[in-house]
């Protein structure tokens, strides 16, 4: 089956990108890796009159790390490049390990982190770990630019806070916190290569035996990747005993809002949220990085 017809632009600068988009933002799809875009154009889940490729825009593929300012992942930086980046591996291992579970080698050599986020799937595997790291997105428009926390950027299935004439130039991760422990767990009942039935990213610091800065983020169990705020609150400031962890896991189960799909039923996903949250928190407490 063929892709539908569209016009194609490959601008070399951001100005050219905005010129190409013009006032046709709603008829435009931005192309970074295309691994989500092409199948969704083919199946009719997304439609467009024109595709604007970002690959040729100088500088958008950069991955920059500075201990003072943190990590910046450009819009065209490939998943594989981020996964293999030495600074990411050293300072943000949860991101590298999440990417390793995402799709396949071939997809990771074509798809981008920013594309994964902008695709705005509830099961975008980079979203929970980046949310756990406190990431922000930089939104650039024809006239100005601004930043938004990633938590909240994705507003619904295939919907984000990006306006049609804007693009996400990069995702920004705060400087590494050596005391912050992070973990990402993903589960599919069918295969090691599959869209997550449930994913969990969790982060916390242990200070004098008490859990601080607890963050619990869930994938695939709500219209967007979600912050399990109540679950985190159930643990925050407390000694992470197994009873406390169990309570946090049950709380996460209660606050997720999954729907049934053919990978897993709603009830099974709720159950998995509890199991995976418990396992994630235990892993953190027992010495996660």
């Amino acid at each position: 089956m063929r892709l539908p017809a569209f016009d194609y632009h490959a601008p070399a600068t951001l100005d050219e990108v905005f010129a190409a988009i013009g006032d046709r933002g709603r008829d435009t799809q931005l192309l970074a890796g295309g691994t989500d875009l092409l199948p969704s154009l083919r199946s009719g889940k997304r439609r467009c009159r024109q595709v604007v490729a970002l690959k040729g825009v100088a500088g958008l593929d950069a991955i920059r790390f500075d201990p003072e300012t943190g990590l910046e992942i450009g819009a065209c930086a490939l998943l594989a490049e981020v996964q293999d980046n030495p600074a990411v591996r050293e300072h943000y291992p949860v991101l590298a390990s999440a990417i390793r579970t995402l799709a396949t080698v071939q997809v990771r050599h074509k798809a981008t982190v920013v594309g994964n986020l902008c695709n705005a799937s509830p099961c975008a595997d980079t979203a929970p770990p980046l949310m756990a790291l406190g990431a922000r997105v930089r939104i650039v428009g024809p006239d100005d630019q601004h930043e938004l926390p990633l938590d909240g950027f994705i507003t619904g299935p295939r919907r984000t806070a990006r306006e049609p004439e804007e693009l996400i130039s990069s995702v920004l991760v705060p400087p590494p916190d050596p005391a912050l422990r992070t973990v990402f767990l993903k589960f599919s009942p069918r295969s090691k290569v599959d869209i997550s039935a449930v994913s969990v990213a969790a982060a916390l610091r242990l200070e004098d035996g008490l859990a601080r800065a607890v963050g619990i983020f869930l994938g695939t169990v709500a219209p967007t990747p979600m912050r399990a705020a109540s679950a985190a609150a159930a643990l925050e400031g407390l000694e992470p005993t197994s009873e406390v962890i169990d309570l946090a896991a049950r709380t996460a189960r209660g606050e997720c809002q999954p729907v049934t799909d053919f990978r897993a039923s709603k009830e099974y996903k709720q159950h998995l949220v509890e199991v995976l949250t418990r396992r994630a928190l235990r892993a953190l407490v027992e010495g996660g990085a």
Binding site: L31, G34, T35, V51, A53, Q106, H109, K110
Partner: peptide, 12 residues
Amino acid sequence: RPVNSCLTLAVE
């Protein structure tokens, strides 16, 4: 880089 050529536009 190994990629899926079915997920790549020829123009790319």
